[in-house]
Design a binder for these strands. Sequence first.
DNA 1: AATAACATGTAACGCGTTACATGATTAC
DNA 2: GTAATCATGTAACGCGTTACATGTTATT
Lengths: 177, 177
Amino acid sequence: MSLRYALLGLLAEEPASGYDLTKKFERVLQRYAWHAQHSQIYPELSRMAADGLITVAEEGARGRRTYAITDAGRDDLRRWMVNPPDAIVVRNEFVLRLFLLATLDPAEARRLLEWTADINAKQLEELRASVAAFDAAADPAAGLPMQRLVAEFGLRSFQVLSEWTEWAIERIDPPQE
Amino acid sequence: MSLRYALLGLLAEEPASGYDLTKKFERVLQRYAWHAQHSQIYPELSRMAADGLITVAEEGARGRRTYAITDAGRDDLRRWMVNPPDAIVVRNEFVLRLFLLATLDPAEARRLLEWTADINAKQLEELRASVAAFDAAADPAAGLPMQRLVAEFGLRSFQVLSEWTEWAIERIDPPQE
DNA sequence: AATAACATGTAACGCGTTACATGATTAC
DNA sequence: GTAATCATGTAACGCGTTACATGTTATT
């Protein structure tokens, strides 16, 4: 059911088409929170419309259908948001590899960590740039919007992974080649 | 296919039964890396045995079957470990709620963050205790084993979430009740 | 004797991925 | 005119969850 609430949450910010939502998943949610492809999104939007959680707000060119959240949808979303489950369940193939690092020999483990550090550094740089652009444009008198709070969480998470990989590489057996 | 490699990885450390593996998932992997229940684990073990990646090493009381990884299994696992995908895909319902925090009013968002901080603090304490016990028993002359490296990643991740929730709560609109 | 923990199995259903399929509009 | 992007849809298959189902061994 998480897909449904991810979609509802995005539609709570602004109306969007299945195509728009697919792009948002790719650009943002996939790396941190949730993933879905268009083949899953389109049928789910139809079901959500049938359930009265969203409505077609506009029909555009190329069969584009822009959906908007309804009051019933907002209610449903709110209920889900304030009733989190008590167990945290995560699926992260990348972290799974970290857990199984001990099954590699030190040289290979080192290489995997270096790869990790690499792609992480790239993602951190991207996020840093977009946050900097946002901060430059923002009104310093106003409070931080929620989106900025979450971006901060992203920054700090990348930062930790970056520091940890450096720390771990230093501690792996063959200290240098 | 990640389930298969999670199981192979655990069996690479030591032989285990489906029951043992189910417990390991619950205790360790679920929170950070991967999740599976016994109903998924038992059939997968049968398939892995049929594919020659593991073998029944021992049959015990109550129909217990202890599996051990084979050389073919180690090869397969190694191949998977050193060939990570280039996109990071994460499913984390908890982080999804953080992304959708903006859909709640400030008071509710604050409550959700406080709940987050709470369960996070508990998990951090548990991990801290088990790491402290491990460090006390470890030989200071030997290098840190991989498992200790990963535990460090867990500690730092919890630490970041803890600091961030505190930071975010301070920045949410109604500064106090 | 009862309860908890150990131990495995499977059927039904729902969620998620891959692949196939089609067509319109925009930019070069 | 042709390639890229926009835009949607669905079938087949594989992965994951829930629920049902059964029996053994250890502890109190």
